[in-house]
Design a protein around this nucleic acid. Structure first.
Length: 490
RNA sequence: GCUCCAGUGGUGUAGCCCGGCCAAUCAUGCGGGCCUUUCGAGCCCGCGACUCGGGUUCAAAUCCCGACUGGAGCACCA
């Protein structure tokens, strides 16, 4: 039946089902978390975890928890809490619950105490270098077999701020084949004031402690993380075992390698402070806000990340693929305008003035624009003497001479076919009168100056437009003397 | 160096678990054509890959071993 009416629908359907991403071990409900460190806004790298979590949560009607992991006061940027939420909202990710780790310090302390009481953790006062030497040989340090009472006493001292240079270590396997797993630290002292809690705490949990504790208490069922966390998963397994907790399902995906863009939050921040970048949304950066400013749609990023998926092999991020998806989205809504970069004056002799009305979009009704031709226009190409050109949508001309910055040409004919026969080029043009000074900021942050046609002045900020043959840009700012756009892609 | 993981066209992806229907999917890219007064979009055609070597098997992209390549981890960061 369906085969007769619409066979292509069937084909499409099976394909879609095949490519769909699935989660293993889904019981009644999935709870997943996205856990960034609030050191800056979200970038392309983060968007992968955020999107995949959101996708699965929506697919299985579960819960998305945003957990801000701010247990290293040195790596917290106060504005980042807000920025991360904005970025997620922009990506259309539904945050079901928000948790901030610095609000949960007492919880971590309690659980640490329990581990000490059970004899699974101890306070270690060894010099880090010395400990490492012992650890690498698989030899326990002398702190390891202190009594529970002593450890609790020392732990209290740590909290009281009367013990320096101590850490709490988890007893794992001192001969574990991965040395970093051997009695790894779970708490450390850090005196740097915390942007949220000030100097209230000086003892902070390390990730491999706070993460499993929170994952368990929040009821996380599936954890999606990069394979750089594989060893951490192994470490965290000890915590689950000691508390006799059931472990969530872990999925480790390959590293997403993104070339040609700055993604390191600390490097970006440094660059901003030095004035090298104009802010978190500088077009050279890989932050979501930079992409937004350039006119990349959140759906394009979302689809891009789903396409990449969760396979364990590393993947190279392809800007081309992202652009292709974005182009597909914005093509139908982007109004067309003429824009000439590096403008040169062109005087056309012997042509009658006239007014043209062109469509804003080749196949959708987005209105018309008006071009008044009065003999003098801007063009961006270098024109050759004696060659025929066509001012697009207008008429054929032949270049006569170039005098300084001004090109002189003579009107030749109307018919497009003549141009074809003479193998002439079609060029863009903008009437000199009423030309709108326009700056396009490219992906390197360079300003490219030129003129757009008169009606371009009616665009709204934030609108996406296509400068014909030039590329898609987002209108960023309108000033009295010019309009500023950010370049998206061809 | 040690430990672990992975290798499908330029890029991303499907297939690999449960060998045959895979002279390998889809997208992007590239080349060509149609259309078009955009070198855009759309439509059509084409290009292009199972890292290599052994083994198991009637049969291997799919299973096993080795090599090579790439990656991750080896912190009082996350």
């Amino acid at each position: 039946m369906l085969e007769e009416i619409a066979p292509e629908m069937l084909v499409e359907d099976t394909r879609e089902r095949k490519r769909e991403l699935v989660l293993k071990n889904v019981k009644d409900r999935v709870v997943m978390r996205f856990a960034p460190n609030p050191s800056g806004p979200l970038h392309l790298g983060h968007s992968r975890a955020a999107v995949l979590n959101d996708y699965f949560v929506k697919k299985y009607r579960g819960k998305f928890i945003l957990r801000l992991e701010d247990t290293d006061p040195k790596r917290v940027l106060p504005e980042a809490y807000e920025m991360i939420e904005e970025d997620l909202e922009w990506l259309n990710i539904g945050v079901g619950e928000k948790v901030v780790q610095s609000d949960r310090m007492e919880i971590y302390y309690e659980h640490c105490e329990r581990l000490i009481e059970m004899g699974h953790a101890y306070v270690c006062q060894c010099d880090p270098q010395e400990f490492r030497v012992l650890k690498n040989q698989g030899i326990p340090c002398r702190c390891r077999d202190r009594s529970v009472e002593e450890n609790l006493e020392l732990w209290e001292k740590m909290l009281d701020n009367s013990l320096e240079g101590a850490v709490v270590r988890l007893k794992t396997d001192i001969k574990h084949k991965n040395p970093s797993v051997r009695d790894f630290p779970i708490f450390r002292i850090e005196d740097t004031p915390h942007p949220k809690t000030g100097d209230r705490y000086t003892v902070y949990p390390l990730m491999n402690f706070s993460v499993p504790v929170d994952d368990y208490l929040l009821g996380i069922t599936h954890v999606l993380r990069g394979k750089d966390h594989i060893v951490n998963t192994e470490k965290q397994r000890y915590i689950y075992q000691y508390f006799n907790w059931e472990m969530p399902e872990y999925i480790h995906y390959g590293i997403l390698k993104i070339e040609g863009t700055v993604l390191s939050t600390s490097k970006m921040y440094e660059g901003i402070l030095k004035g090298e970048y104009r802010g978190w949304d500088d077009p050279r950066l890989g932050t979501l806000r930079a992409l937004r400013r350039r006119g990349i749609r959140p759906e394009a990023i979302y689809r891009s990340m789903l396409e990449i998926g969760i396979k364990p092999a590393d993947v190279k991020f392809s800007w081309e693929n992202l652009y292709a998806i974005n182009r597909e989205i914005i093509d139908r809504e982007a109004k067309r305008f003429f824009f000439v970069e590096n403008p040169k004056r062109l005087k056309v002799l012997g042509a009658e003035p006239r007014t043209l009305y062109l469509r804003m979009h080749p196949d959708r009704d987005l209105g018309t624009r008006e071009l008044r031709f009065e003999g003098e226009v801007y063009v961006s190409d270098d024109l050759e003497v004696n060659r025929m050109y066509r001012l697009m949508e207008l008429c054929n001309i032949v270049v006569e001479r170039v005098e300084g910055d001004v090109i002189y040409a003579r009107y030749h004919s109307e018919d497009f076919k003549i141009l074809r026969r003479k193998r002439g080029k079609i060029i863009h043009w903008v009437p000199v009168k009423d030309a709108v000074k326009t700056v396009v900021v490219d992906t390197e942050g360079r300003e490219r100056c030129g003129f757009a046609e008169k009606d371009f002045k009616n665009v709204n900020i934030d609108e996406l437009v296509q400068f014909e043959r030039y590329g898609f840009t987002r209108v960023d700012d309108k000033r009295e003397d010019r309009i500023v756009c950010y370049f998206a892609h061809k």
